[in-house]
Every structure is written in C-alpha cells, then in structure tokens.
Simulated assay, not measured.
Amino acid sequence: MQKFLINKEALSADKAAIHGQDAKHICKVLRLKPQDTISMTDGHGNDYTGCIDKASFECVEISILSEKKSLTESNLDLTLCTAMLKHNKMDGIIKQITQLGVTRWIPFYCKRSIPLSGQKKEQKQIERWQTIARESLKQCRRSCLVDIMPPMDFEQVLLFSKACSHKFAFWEASERPLTGVLPKENNKAVVLIGPEGGFEEEEIRLAVESGFISYSLGPRILRAETAAVSACGLIQYLLGDMGGR
C-alpha cells in the first residue's frame, strides 16, 4: 500500500486530513472510499494507519487507528554532500538517495561545480528538490524526509562535517579501496562527492586536513551522480541497515 505524507498541522490525536494532489490521487487513481484503510507518515519517523471517513478530490478525512515508530529508517545518520551539477542530475540524486535512507543532502560549490545565478533561482531550486524528496518518500515507504539543506561553499561543508565520526571523500585519483569500516559510538557519517571533472588536489588536501579519508570507487571513472548513489549504498551496507553488519 502506498504511504501518504501528512502535515502535522493536519493531524490531531485521532484525526488527519489529506489535501491537494494527494487527495485527488487517492480518489481518482487509487479509488479509495470511506471505510478503506490508508497508510500515512508525518515525515519525522512516525507511521499511522487510518480509516477514511470522507473522500473528495479536495480533501480526504481520516480517523487514526494506530500509530507507531517507523521500521524503515536507518540507524545511520548519513549526510551526502554533492558538488553542484546540472539541475536534472541533482533531481535524480535526490530520488535515489531517498530510497537509500540518506538523512540529509547538502549541495555545495567548489572550483569545478555548476553555479546557480541569484538567490531567487537558488530558493526555487530548493523548493523543487523538497518536492522531489516528498514524492520519493511516498514511493519507497520511508517515514523521514531527507533534509534538503541550502547550498554551501566548500569550507562550510568541511565545518559542518566536524560532528561526524566517519568522513568519506570519494576521489577518482585515490588508490585507497573502501574496505571494512568499523562503527563508532557516534554513528554519523558524511560522504563527499565532487563535480564533473572531479575535485582539485587542493580541495582534497583541505578535506583530509578536516578529518576526511580519500577513497576510490574502483578502476572506472563514474559520473558524479553515479558516484553519489553508489557511495551511499556502500556506506549503508557497511554502517547502516543494508545488511553488512
């Protein structure tokens, strides 16, 4: 059953409401009606099962039957930092990392990244990325939205990473393979992926000085978006909930 995202403002102790396109989808596509059950999440790790009371294209009113903590969220607090790429490539990354259980995503600027021109354009992109994250959450039945953070510069990303126990910088010039990584008491990890053309050596040097370890993703050169998704899957396998531990 598809999981729907509900706003906390539309949720009370025993009632919920779904509006807009989701309400239309429930009625027109899924053809759900009163007395049918529906699965929901608040996007903050709580899941709900409800019974539809009233259904229209504008609003679906629901009685809450049960509430529980999600079982689909990783034990790993995983942050992915990707250098800015063309917009459609960034859209694809968000879809994939939502499925992989990433906690937050930080786009950033470095010497070879693609710039966004102007604050209005940047805000518009952030809103678009948040919409993609919401839609992806419903598809893969997660219960926590990926935290889409505003674009940072490279130095800000390194500063953010100070609180993380595991710091991975994937770089095509590295010869270090990604082998068994032992979990630490603070199970927070950050993954650094460069732009098309890769990081400059000076950027990797600064990352290493900030506690990152430079790793390889194998003998082939990967596209930046492929590297981002592959790296997150590997880290979830080693440290998270995808079967490696």
Score class of each variant (00 low, 15 high):
T103N: 13
V229S: 09
C232A: 13
L11V: 10
I94N: 04
G118E: 06
T103F: 11
C59K: 13
K3R: 15
S214Q: 12
G233H: 09
T226I: 01
S230M: 12
L234Q: 12
S74E: 07
T72I: 05
R220M: 07
F170I: 12
G45Q: 04
K124T: 13
I213R: 12
R223F: 02
S143T: 11
S113F: 06
A133V: 04
I52C: 11
C51I: 15
M90A: 11
A207K: 00
A55T: 00
T98N: 08
L192P: 04
D91W: 00
H25E: 05
E200W: 00
K68Y: 06
Y109G: 13
G198T: 01
L145V: 13
D14W: 00
K15A: 13
I106W: 05
Q2W: 00
S70A: 10
S70V: 04
S39L: 10
V102H: 05
L30A: 05
S214M: 11
L85S: 07
L11D: 07
S117N: 12
A228V: 01
I148V: 15
E203S: 05
I148P: 10
C51H: 05
P219R: 11
E209K: 14
L78P: 09
E73F: 02
Y48A: 08
I132H: 08
L65M: 14
K68W: 06
I6D: 01
K28P: 01
D91N: 12
